[in-house]
């Protein structure tokens, strides 16, 4: 099946089985490896992308549902030269260790900040439920608060 959608602002067109998970289309057909496979069952959040601005776990999202939608991945999180406030904050707090889960966390955080510009600790606890095995949650929480500051400063 042919599917058209926008990926990081660019029009793309793929011809794949309509039920192929969006994750694998992004990774293997469109060759963007920043979005990670962790569990394939929407349980870990490593594959989180934005679909029309909403956080979506792409391993469990059939590509046919992407038709006509705008998809954003970690590669498209920043709009150009400058890092997205979430990435900037992640850098300032030196969050990543192995780094594998981090794109998913950053995408989830970016979606959170779009909806709740100044999240409380409770908002963070409830919304950010991805899994990090290295245990970077402590720094991530600091980075999420910092990202909110950076984003508010910018706007």
């Amino acid at each position: 099946m042919k599917v058209d959608f926008k990926l990081n602002q660019k029009e793309v067109n793929v011809d794949v089985d309509e039920n192929t998970p969006l994750l694998w289309v992004i990774r293997d057909v469109l060759d963007m490896k920043g979005t990670k496979f962790g569990c394939g069952k929407a349980a870990c959040g490593a594959c989180t992308v934005h679909v029309d601005g909403e956080a979506v776990r792409s391993c469990s999202f059939a590509v046919k549902f992407a038709s006509g939608k705008s998809i954003r991945t970690i590669e498209g999180l920043s709009n150009g030269e400058d890092l997205h406030p979430v990435q900037q904050a992640w850098k300032e707090e030196i969050v990543p260790q192995c780094g594998y889960c981090q794109p998913g966390f950053m995408m989830a955080t970016a979606a959170l900040l779009d909806k709740i510009p100044n999240p409380t600790d409770e908002d963070i606890d409830k919304n950010i439920v991805n899994i990090c095995r290295c245990g970077t949650y402590y720094r991530m929480r600091k980075a999420i608060h910092r990202a909110a500051e950076l984003k508010n400063e910018a706007s």
Binding site: K33, G34, F37, L77, L83, Q87, K91, P96, G99
Partner: peptide, 21 residues
């Protein structure tokens, strides 16, 4: 010193085994 792999890991550019092609 900040991690030397920090930037790549923040922009999703680091290549892990599963990303190899």
């Amino acid at each position: 010193v900040p991690r030397v792999d920090l930037h790549d890991k923040v922009v999703g550019a680091s290549i892990y085994g599963i990303d190899a092609t």
